[in-house]
Nucleic acid binder design. Structure first.
Lengths: 341, 341
DNA sequence: CCCCAACTTGGAAACGTTTGCGTGCGCTGC
DNA sequence: GCAGCGCACGCAAACGTTTCCAAGTTGGGG
């Protein structure tokens, strides 16, 4: 910057003002400075600038896994959105005991970012409270957490609608497949989807049944293995609701591998809006994931611009996309006449 | 830091030395400083530190899309690796004309990172040369580019082996499905896999056939649409080689949707090592993607530690994993007797 | 007992910005 | 023609580290 000042024959202060579009610089001078900066291909040092302004123009996106569709899609959307505002994105992958312990011990994002965006991150109770020590703003995407501003869908209503859809078709034994993280760690979407599922069953007068809810370690086989466990039950379900579309696709592969027809033998429903589910014609409860990420990114930018968000809650719409992976239960009666709620 | 110095009753300089483990501080003093820093939950300001040391302890990972398995897997591995060295990861998604134009105009990572890792990023010729202006070290993952140090598999040999596998089974019409990016933009893996495919065919005495190589826009439907185009040919292929496992899975969905059997009617081979291919029993040429990302991360750390890498080239091994999605051509003869090379 | 080496510590100048404050200038309005 | 005002610009003090250099202390060897 000193170079630019010298060449343009002005003071450093003027260069700073000119390049940042602040008032107090004549158009002529500003233009000249712009040109010289360009010729010298000068860019401000974010370190020095940040030191002065005590702001980083950076956000952290914290996810348990990057190789999960929901998280990478949200990350992509956040990145694209904040990039427009000249904000950079730092990623933190916090998976498993070791990494999460380290993350919450060191709080590595302290002093490095202005805003932290938490995406689908299951948390222990004590970890939740440590978030306050981060010393930065927190935004939650795809869930809710304490009083932090968030953007999500109504996971409870969504899961309930999915379950109801199956109930309406006449299903009475409906399985639920989810993945599990560190024992004890909790993420709101997971809890609320399970509750929505359970509430729909209860409203239909069906007793809760633990054996119908299976949890598998995260991975591409989660849906397949979970489905296998459900099918091994003495009285296996006639329909399966999956926590995510990825799980549903995996479940689908297991069903067809066994020669079972979907929805002839087993009905299948996924959640998320993952286009992969479309490939295999799996009925899915869709949430606008990219828009959700974009909204989170916009909130982050507003926060960095000094706008207080308070406990802003954004709720996105969801829709049931029927692709034909659901039908009446195989051995059961016709679709009509199912006990409705 | 001034606070810590005051409380611990030492100078700022000593605090700096103590916390960074530099020699010249007595054990007793160091321990006292460590404790006070801890009590005050003090962390150094990366901005100030970076300003002084003219290093950022950050790497940028540049990818065309975050929601592609290969890229997110590499990103995850890089992140995990450099995190251990206290290095942060900045992501840049550079997809489409607009974003890439902006990226190469502003070179937003200048002064923000010490190392840039390019992952599967198709580049125009003039963009390649602009990379020098970044002013930071460049590492290439999953491909090669100019003289930059890189880590990759031998894409040519891999694709050739895949094609040879199909030739050995007796196939003579073998399609290739890939995705395309900005016209004119080139990524080495794409080029080299196509060459490996073409060379295997040529070595088997088969004439090149443009119609057998189809390009689709990136997306979950790429494989399905590409396969549909291949099947619509007057003389459709009996086997399809896909640039990635994601494409192969998509192709698989299209084949089964049409009631075609794999490998009964059409043989299918993917590339990458995406576990999703395993779900659908798709034969795949696997590369150790996570290890590849880890290696790239380690190279980045070494670079930041001042170790010159030169034009270091790391080549990872690949393997053919036969999951049964390949077999002799439907109307064709037995598997044996195929012209070998 | 003195000198010197080794070690611990502190002072202060960078690093490259931003920004409050002050100065000089030309212009307007009377 | 003059007081006063606004504008364009420069000076210099932060911001929070790192690091070179010097100073002080301690202990050991001659």
């Amino acid at each position: 910057m000193a170079d630019v000042a010298r060449v343009a024959d002005v003071s450093i202060a003027t260069v700073s003002r000119a390049l940042r579009g602040l008032p107090g610089v004549s158009d002529e001078t500003r233009e000249r400075i712009r040109r010289t900066a360009d010729e010298l291909s000068y860019v401000v040092s974010p370190a020095a600038s940040g030191l002065s302004q005590r702001a980083t123009r950076r956000v952290a996106v914290v996810v348990p896994r990057l190789d999960a569709w929901f998280q990478s899609t949200v990350l992509a959307a956040v990145e694209g959105t904040v990039r427009d505002a000249g904000v950079d994105v730092l990623v933190y992958q916090v998976d498993g005991e070791t990494q999460r312990r380290r993350f919450f011990r060191d709080l590595p994002s302290r002093r490095k970012v202005d805003v932290v965006v938490l995406v689908a991150l299951p948390l222990l109770a004590e970890e939740e409270s440590r978030l306050d020590l981060l010393g930065v703003e927190v935004i939650v995407a795809g869930g809710r957490l304490r009083d932090y501003p968030h953007v999500e869908v109504d996971d409870h209503a969504l899961a309930r609608a999915a379950t109801q859809h199956l109930l309406d078709l006449g299903h009475r034994r409906i399985g639920f497949v989810r993945t599990l993280d560190t024992p004890g760690a909790v993420w709101s979407s997971d809890v609320r989807r399970r509750e929505g599922y359970a509430d729909a069953l209860a409203a239909a007068g069906l007793p809760p049944s633990d054996e119908l809810v299976v949890s598998e370690p995260f991975g591409v086989r989660a849906g397949a293995d979970g489905t296998a466990r459900l099918l091994a039950l003495p009285d296996p379900p006639t329909a399966v609701l999956c926590y995510s579309d990825e799980i549903a696709v995996s479940a689908f592969s297991e069903l067809t591998r066994r020669g079972l027809s979907v929805p002839g033998d087993v009905s299948l429903v996924g959640i998320d809006g993952n286009p992969l589910a479309g490939l295999f014609a799996i009925t899915s409860l869709q949430q606008p994931v990219a828009e959700l990420g974009r909204a989170a990114g916009e909130m982050a930018v507003r926060l960095m611009d000094g706008e207080p968000l308070g406990a802003e809650r954004v709720e996105m719409p969801w829709t049931l996309v029927d692709r034909g992976s659901t039908g009446p239960p195989s051995g059961g009666g016709p679709a009509v006449g199912g006990a409705r709620g």
